[in-house]
């Protein structure tokens, strides 16, 4: 993302999809991980772990280091509560930061990103330019992290560059 100064690739991150088994609640998962697991579309982080709510009983889990063993460790910690699948190479991840970040996302996503409606900790799974993405707001800079299926990376980067050029 050399052409857009407020967007950078994030490569050294581990990702895993977590899906609760039948009857297991966010609180049950939170108990096993000693973590406040969001039951709404939200992002929570702490102790090197991040969780993004992507649907009822489903989350995208993040570790801020690239570690092949981490998804297995997460699976072991959750035991029979949830299924875990490594997504580290399944998604491309971006950091968007600064005033232009909100404007750019708002030109793509048909959800309200105004600070009154979407704040630090808010997350959304949606589409930008017909491409499925998930993004969440980290702070009030505003800074966002965004993931896209790896095979759609070039198309989304093209969209980033086209829209950023018009800002």
């Amino acid at each position: 993302m050399d052409k857009v100064d407020f967007i950078s690739r994030r490569e050294n991150v581990s990702l895993a999809a977590v899906m609760a088994r039948k009857g297991v609640t966010a609180a049950d998962i939170g108990g096993a991980l000693a973590f406040e697991v969001p039951k709404e579309p939200a992002y929570r982080s702490g102790s090197g772990l991040g969780l993004v709510g992507t649907g009822p009983g489903t989350w995208l889990a993040l570790s801020e280091t690239l570690d092949n063993e981490w998804p297995s460790a997460l699976e072991a910690a959750l035991g029979s509560l949830a299924s875990v699948s490594d997504q580290s190479s399944g998604y491309a991840m971006y950091r968007l930061s600064g005033a232009n970040a909100r404007e750019l996302l708002q030109r793509g996503a048909t959800i309200d990103l105004d600070p009154l409606a979407f704040t630090a900790g808010s997350a959304a799974t949606t589409v930008i330019s017909h491409i499925g993405v998930a993004f969440w707001q980290l702070d009030d800079t505003p800074a966002y992290d965004l993931v896209v299926f790896r095979s759609m990376r070039e198309s989304l980067e093209h969209w980033f560059e086209s829209v950023a050029a018009s800002l």
Partner: peptide, 11 residues
């Protein structure tokens, strides 16, 4: 009920 108001094109 989970995501909030969304465009019908997502469905």
């Amino acid at each position: 009920p989970y995501c909030g108001d969304r465009d019908s094109q997502e469905f």
